[in-house]
């Protein structure tokens, strides 16, 4: 039972660490937004093309955050380690 408790608690800590990449992802997306707004203010006539490029850039930057979220979800809801441990314990 203690082994199961240790694996579950470690999985929860691992999920929290995986979600920490939200910090860097947010900084990256903030940089993209700031630069896009700056260029829109400088050249309002190019605002449409800048906006679509900004959305693509935001989506690209979001990918790493999504990977962290998926790792956290797998750790919490579909953890393979618990199955391995249960078969090991019998």
């Amino acid at each position: 039972m203690l082994e199961l408790a240790i694996v579950i608690s470690v999985a929860h800590i691992a999920a929290a660490i995986a979600l920490l990449n939200g910090i860097t992802t947010t900084f990256g997306q903030a940089k993209i937004c700031a630069q896009a707004i700056e260029s829109m203010a400088r050249q309002p006539e190019a605002a449409d093309s800048i906006r679509s490029a900004m959305f693509i850039g935001l989506a690209m930057g979001e990918t790493s955050g999504i990977y962290g979220l998926l790792i956290a979800i797998i750790m919490l809801f579909a953890n393979p380690l618990i199955d391995i441990l249960l078969t090991y314990l019998g």
Binding site: A59, E62, T63, I66, Y67, L69, L70, I73
Partner: peptide
Amino acid sequence: VSLSFRLFGNMLS
């Protein structure tokens, strides 16, 4: 992989 995970992660969240 990245294309599918992006949409999946957003809708799942």
